[in-house]
Simulated scan of single mutants.
Amino acid sequence: MSAYLGPVKTALITFPFLALVLALPFLVIVYRRYGAFSWWRAIVIYSFIFYLLSAYFLIILPLPSREAVAQFTGPKYNLIPFMALRYFIHTTVFSPTNPHTWLAALKQSAFIQPFFNIVLTIPFGFYLRYYFKRSVPQIIIMSFGLSLFFELTQLSGLYGFYPRPYRLFDVDDLILNTTGGLIGGVLAPILMQALPSRDTMDAKSQARGVRVTLMRRLVAFFIDFMILSTIVSLMIRFLFRLLGWAQLPDFLSEMVLPLFFVFVIWPVFNDGKTLGKSLVRIKIVRTDGRPVGFWRLLLREALLYGLAYSSLIGASNFLIEYVVLGHQTEINLAALGFFGLISVLVVLNFIWETFTRHYRFFYDAWADTTQISTLKVSADVKQHTADDEQ
């Protein structure tokens, strides 16, 4: 049993890091397709990823040393089908005419190993049928493909890391894994009765997608502020060095120009959508629905970054100056009070709008702008959701 628990424990340790890496792409895909986040969809997708990670570790772990593998002299592959069945018949105590031997035979390795290869891919077939809505023939083909990937991983010596295979490439494993996937696909409709259907998940998410949630905006903000602005900043610095011009002050090359390009210039020419907003299907418009213009965008971003963001940074810097470093001058105190007051008002505004779930923060109110979803929801989706809720 420890041979199976060890790889699963490794998967448990690795999974949080993989989940963190996949979080942004997952959220972008969800918001782009459906417009709303669903906890049940997240559970299904992430459990599927964890299953695949565990299955992969089960077929490659434990890893021997390269020196030990170099000394192996055994066969590299078995291309004769049903050798596992022959091995079970000839090496176990199983006797068809003696029921007392049946249970004992199930405890022997000649049964446990093939049985494990079937069980390994049963969840794969279930996920394919339940969430990905694949037909039984497609499940058979995809289960065979997954098994072939596992076997080739072993045959290649972990993609060339080892001088030769450290596990046997076995055609019986292909048969057993494919059978397991088929079993999972066939049994899926029985278990699906107790779970929300994929159509229900999609319909509810798309119906809620007409509303722009805070999480949806934060995903767009992360892409624009953390990723795109950083890339633009590096490009500006590179361009200025390439042209031999004097180096820009850091606050211009790192903040002002990148933010101006990403949050003002880009959406002006892209119907009120930054790159992040385009990916999650939202855009900025005036409160009456008309397109937002350059000056209104400039005012909006000046309030957000020039006033709110700068005040938070200023309050933090002067707090360090006055309290931590001990530079308790009247100027530092006045600056701390000024930036601190603005920061408190900004934070209170964000807390209030988040608590009330209006999400129309002060910079949108003052600039007369709002954010709307660009996701198109069909009448069928709305009807499907209404019927499901009755």
Rank of each mutant, 00 (worst) to 15 (best):
A203P: 01
F17I: 14
G125I: 00
F15L: 03
F240P: 04
I175T: 01
S135R: 12
P196T: 06
I139M: 04
G157E: 04
L312Q: 07
T370M: 13
L63N: 14
F339S: 12
V280R: 00
A315G: 04
Q108E: 15
V323M: 06
M1A: 10
I313Y: 14
F17T: 12
A335F: 05
M201F: 09
I183C: 03
M1E: 08
P75E: 05
R296Y: 07
S311Y: 04
L152Q: 13
G6H: 11
V262C: 14
L297D: 06
R281N: 08
S311A: 10
G326M: 00
G289T: 13
L336V: 02
V347C: 10
Q138F: 12
L243M: 08
A246Y: 03
F144A: 15
T369I: 14
L176Y: 01
F126R: 00
L103P: 10
D170N: 08
Q390L: 13
A308H: 10
T356H: 12
Y363I: 08
V324S: 09
R164E: 14
H384E: 07
A203M: 08
I320M: 10
S373Y: 06
F94Q: 09
Q138Y: 13
Y31E: 00
L218H: 11
T10D: 09
K376L: 10
T213G: 09
A220W: 03
L234N: 05
I60V: 14
D387M: 14
F149R: 05
T200S: 15
I265D: 04
K283V: 13
